[in-house]
C-alpha cells in the first residue's frame, strides 16, 4: 500500500484529504506543519505528499526546499494543495520541486487526477 503524507494545519482539510486518499487505497499520515513533516520524512519517506503552502513553524515552500535537498528527498511525489492560486505561486512551487499543484478548494476528482498525473494512481478506463 502506498503512503501519502498530508501536510496541512487545517484539521478539516486533513480529514477531507484522508477520506479521499483512503478511498484510493492510500495509507494516510498527517502532519500539521512543515517541520513535523520533515521529521516524519526523515523517519520514513512517503510515496506522496499533499502539501499546504501557508503553515506555522515551517511553510510548504521551506519544507519542500529542505526535503528535496535531503537524502531520499527526491523520491516522493509532491502535490502542492493551496489557496495561493496565481501563476507566480504555482511557478515557484514547481521551481523548488513540486510535481503537481492543486488549487483549493478541490474535490475528489481533481485529487485523483493529479495522483494519476504523477503516476501514483492507475488511469481510469475511458
Amino acid at each position: 500500500m502506498k503512503t501519502c503524507l498530508v501536510v496541512d494545519d487545517s484539521r478539516l482539510v486533513r480529514k477531507v484529504a484522508r477520506n479521499i486518499l483512503e478511498g484510493l487505497a492510500f495509507c494516510v499520515e498527517e502532519a500539521v506543519d512543515g517541520q513535523t513533516a520533515l521529521d516524519f520524512c526523515a523517519h520514513a519517506m512517503p510515496d506522496a505528499i499533499l502539501l499546504d503552502w501557508q503553515m506555522p513553524v515551517k511553510d510548504g515552500l521551506q519544507f519542500l526546499q529542505q526535503l528535496r535537498a535531503s537524502d531520499g528527498g527526491a523520491l516522493p511525489k509532491v502535490i502542492f494543495c493551496t489557496s495561493m492560486n496565481d501563476l507566480d505561486h504555482i511557478a515557484r512551487a514547481i521551481a523548488v520541486g513540486a510535481d503537481e499543484y492543486i488549487m483549493k478548494p478541490f474535490d475528489a476528482d481533481i485529487l485523483r487526477e493529479k495522483l494519476e498525473a504523477v503516476g501514483l494512481v492507475g488511469k481510469e478506463p475511458s
Binding site: L87, I90, A91, I94, A98, E100, Y101, I102, M103, F106, D109, I110, E113, K114, A117
Partner: peptide, 11 residues
C-alpha cells in the same frame, strides 16, 4: 483547468 490539464500545461 484542473481537470485533465497538468500544471506545466497550465503554466
Amino acid at each position: 483547468v484542473q481537470r485533465g490539464l497538468g500544471v506545466q500545461q497550465l503554466l
